[in-house]
């Protein structure tokens, strides 16, 4: 079944990009979930859509040739900085930043789509992902972003974990919480923008949270949770891409369904092992 993905360039780029986002989305997702910020991914994906719509609009109406990947990334990063600012302003109601940014993203998307008189199938691909949408240039850009993200996470891993577990302790011990927060949210924005080609705007947050939700039920320790999340993410992306291609379904949908299946299996395993313990057959 993999033969087509290895034979055709456009499929190969999508497949390799899928492998990359199968690593970076759950990697960042682990920190997002433990910090109870799962909805931030949704807010940023909608801002990214606004950026993509802006890029498509500029290209269609003004022939400026702005690659939607980059305009999406730009909007996503700006949105992430704005979220951090809002969370600082509304300290007692930090979650309010999410609907503000999410609705702002949808609002801007609608405006750019209307101004461009619609984008037909191209926009549909951005909403739900596509197995054929990743160009060679996109692939190399996403490869570069992935390398940067993995290096930065490696470099700031101990600060990110410390801050995620207990922010007050982290601040008291001298960690610059604000700077690390900002760095983290900008990385999240980059991951979302990079993932949208394959998974789509509406489903990108699922790839950041579902593998983590599954792994946190069975992992012993934080590092193990990251490892399991990435394994589950990769399984979901590979099965989702191949099945999406063969059944002509946008891969965003199949990737999410596989992720949910993995989650259900882990929940079943956990229940099974609990019953074995209760009945003393372990």
């Amino acid at each position: 079944m993999l033969a087509d993905f290895l034979e055709y360039n456009f499929l190969r780029h999508t497949f390799l990009t899928g492998i990359l986002i199968g690593v970076i989305a759950p990697l960042l997702g682990t920190f997002i979930v433990v910090r109870r910020l799962s909805l931030i991914a949704d807010a940023l994906s909608h801002v990214t859509l606004a950026g993509i719509a802006f890029g498509l609009f500029m290209d269609k109406k003004l022939a400026l040739g702005i690659a939607p990947l980059y305009s999406g990334m730009g909007f996503s990063v700006l949105g992430s900085i704005f979220i951090e600012k809002l969370r600082g302003v509304y300290k007692a109601y930090q979650e309010i930043a999410i609907p503000i940014i999410l609705s702002g993203g949808v609002g801007l998307s609608v405006i750019f789509i209307a101004l461009a008189d619609g984008f037909n199938t191209e926009l549909f691909n951005y909403l739900f992902g596509s197995v054929s949408a990743v160009s060679q240039t996109d692939f190399y850009s996403i490869l570069g972003i992935s390398i940067v993200i993995i290096l930065v996470i490696r470099l700031f891993y101990k600060e990110l974990v410390t801050l995620s577990f207990d922010e007050e302790h982290a601040v008291v011990s001298g960690i610059h919480a604000k700077r690390i927060h900002l760095l983290f949210i900008v990385l999240t924005a980059l991951v979302i923008a990079a993932s949208i080609r394959v998974v789509g705007v509406l489903l990108v947050s699922a790839l950041m949270t579902l593998p983590v939700a599954a792994s946190m039920r069975i992992a012993r320790g934080f590092k193990q949770m990251i490892l399991f999340s990435i394994v589950f993410g990769e399984v979901a992306v590979i099965i989702g891409l191949i099945s999406g291609y063969y059944f002509s379904i946008p891969p965003g949908g199949t990737i999410v369904v596989v992720s949910i299946a993995i989650l259900l299996v882990t929940l079943g395993m956990e229940r099974f092992s609990f019953r074995r313990k209760v009945h003393g057959t372990d």
């Binding site: 974990v161 410390t162 577990f165 011990s173 946190m216 992992a219 934080f222």
Partner: peptide
């Protein structure tokens, strides 16, 4: 619910 081991939590005391 934070899936950190005792070792990982104590390690956090060395971060700064």
């Amino acid at each position: 619910g934070f899936p950190a081991t005792v070792f990982e939590v104590v390690s956090m005391g060395l971060t700064a």
